[in-house]
């Protein structure tokens, strides 16, 4: 089909989204996209969901840290932000989510808000709550495995 004249084309906004999860979470791109759409559908309804779009354009996640580029229509950024805030779990894995910034192009979005992937995580034993436990250490953050669950800690709580 012939593409639209410029003034009729959809204007987009691209949201840089930071994702945090426990280190053993396995979150696929497909699962995250589904969670985004479900969150929008549940919060804004079908009509609102169509308005915010929320197509996932880029997605990386490794060892519980990740980032994504989410597309939304210009003028619906706050609704998109609301829907993104309501994503609390993907396939049963709880996630923390934050909008780092908004750009008018994917390229600007990536250059400005993405990358900068922190230091690589190290798996090692730390002293926490009176016992040696296995933890994933990234900078001063420590995700400690306690029984079958995780506890978020920092360098202050171990050592």
């Amino acid at each position: 089909m012939k593409h639209l004249p410029k003034h009729l084309r959809q204007r987009w906004r691209y949201l840089a989204v930071g994702i945090e999860a426990w280190p053993d979470a396995s979150i696929s791109r497909r699962g995250f996209q589904r969670a985004l759409w479900y969150a929008a559908g549940n919060l804004l309804g079908d009509a609102g969901s169509a308005d915010v779009d929320l197509t996932l354009l880029g997605f990386t996640l490794a060892d519980g840290r990740g980032e994504a580029v989410v597309r939304t229509r210009r003028g619906h950024v706050e609704a998109a932000r609301a829907a993104i805030a309501c994503v609390h779990a993907v396939d049963g894995d709880p996630i923390g989510i934050r909008v780092r910034g908004i750009s008018g192009t994917v390229r600007a979005c990536e250059e400005r808000y993405m990358g900068g992937a922190g230091r690589d995580p190290i798996q090692r034993a730390v002293a926490f709550a009176g016992a040696e436990r296995s933890a994933v250490v990234r900078g001063d953050a420590r995700d400690v495995a306690v029984e079958s669950d995780h506890v978020g800690a920092t360098a202050f709580d171990t050592e």
């Binding site: 945090e20 609704a79 932000r81 805030a85 989510i97």
Partner: peptide, 15 residues
């Protein structure tokens, strides 16, 4: 993981 930034919280509550 359950913490949300003020701006996100405000947007969700506004919705």
């Amino acid at each position: 993981l359950e913490l949300r930034a003020p701006r996100e919280l405000v947007a969700a509550a506004a919705a």
